[in-house]
Each structure stands twice: as structure tokens, then as C-alpha cells.
Design a protein around this nucleic acid. Structure first.
Lengths: 111, 111
DNA sequence: GATACATGGTATGTAATACAAGGTATTGGT
DNA sequence: ACCAATACCTTGTATTACATACCATGTATC
């Protein structure tokens, strides 16, 4: 699909995954592949910068977690601000959908 | 609303308006204001470059039309490729919506 | 000893939109 | 006759998100 369409929507997909439970980067990528591969997949070079941006904006926070085997990985979790962002996005989505219905007709975006 | 969300969707809004009937730039702007102002408005500096891009890609074509008063204005109309783009976008939109439902739950994006 | 997976990172480019400004021509009000 | 508003088109620069491609490291597996 046209990647341009993802702009602005992609962060919310990530936030949605983190709203379910805290996850580290690789787990996010895997989960995305499992659940959305038909729509899109993300390279690491897309995912990590995205996570940094989200953290910069305070919508997620991360901490390094030491595993039993001594390895570390970075686990992200959503913040209240992140949850508000999801809600706001939902509103925007509906406004967009309404604009499309206005212009392309009622039949549009039924399924 | 977050303008990032419009990326990739905006051209389709324009194409939709031109699918109704050929229009010149200003008329497009007016119609948009009338029908979508709650969602967004476009400055001319956003609209015209958008039209140029669409024409470059062959999704619309334009011609100068001389009015009775001797003035000229540029009228755009959609091409078959443009119509195909609308249809493709519709598919992408539904895929996106499905991804959100997958992740944010069935309740999402109902209206 | 090669290959794959798990996990995190950076650097650079591209393309869509935002914003700001400028320009001409007509119309209408005072 | 003048000013303001509206109709209409154009250009240039900045922002920003995402794509692409690449690197590093360790561990399991064949």
C-alpha cells in the first residue's frame, strides 16, 4: 500500500500495541508482522526512529531491562499522554472519514 | 486536526471533487471550504502545488479556458488514472481501518 | 564455520504538506 | 476617482515523517 497514507497514522498503531502491554522494539515488529502484515511491514530503520520520536514527545517511555541471561533490551510502555493521543487520533480519523463520505458518497468506506 | 494525517489522503479529496465535475483552482478551494471546513482548510499555497503534482502524475489534466470577459482560468478535470487512484485509495483506507480494528478493538472506527 | 535469528542502532534521502509572500484583474462601495 | 475586497494563479522555503540501506553484536543451530 501507499506508504504516504501511513504518515501520522503509524505512531498510533504503535501506541495501540503498547496500550495492550509494554513491549520492546523487536516484539513490536513481530506483533505487527503477525497482525498487520497484509497492510504493511516496518523495517527497523522505520520503527526505531518512530519510537524515539514518540518518547521525545512523552507518549511512551522506555527502560532497559536485564534478562536472566544477562542481556538487556529496551522496553517501551505507553504514557497517559500517549493514550490521549490515541483518542485524539480517533476523532481525526472520523473527521477524515466524514470528509470522504461528503465527497465520494455515502457508499464510501462501508466495510 | 493533525495535518500529517492528510498526507496521501488529500490528493484523493481533490480527485473526488474533480470526479464530480471539472473545476478551476479557486472553485476547488471554495467547494472544500463549504464541505470540509470542519475537517481542514487549504491555503492556495497548498492547493496549487497539489494540483501540479496530480497533473504531473497524469491523474488530472488542465486547460486554460477563456471566459466571456476575456479572462482566462485554468480548469482541471480528472483522468481515468485519477479515477483508478480513488479506487485504490479506498482499498488502502479499508486496510488501514482494519489494522486499527485489529489493534484498537472492534469498537474502533464505527461511525 | 556458516547461517539465521534476536535485538538495537545510525545516516541519508524523498516527498507531501505548511507557510509566507507576491501578483494581476475585476467588482463594488463611498 | 479611490479604496477595499474578491477572484484567481504562482513561487519559494521550511518541516516532518517515513523509506532505504546499512552497521553491530551476540547466540543458537546446522
Amino acid at each position: 500500500m501507499d506508504r504516504q497514507l501511513l504518515k501520522g497514522h503509524l505512531p498510533v498503531i504503535i501506541l495501540g500495541l503498547l496500550a495492550e502491554e509494554p513491549r520492546h522494539g523487536y516484539a513490536i515488529a513481530e506483533e505487527l508482522k503477525r497482525r498487520c502484515s497484509s497492510a504493511f511491514e516496518l523495517g527497523e530503520g522505520t520503527l526505531y526512529p518512530l519510537l524515539y520520536r514518540l518518547e521525545d514527545k512523552g507518549q511512551i517511555k522506555s527502560k532497559w531491562v536485564r534478562l536472566t541471561n544477562g542481556k538487556e533490551r529496551r522496553v517501551y510502555q505507553i504514557t497517559p499522554a500517549g493514550k490521549r493521543t490515541i483518542a485524539a487520533h480517533q476523532k481525526d480519523w472520523n473527521r477524515l472519514a466524514e470528509a470522504f463520505r461528503n465527497i465520494l458518497g455515502e457508499e464510501w468506506a462501508k466495510a
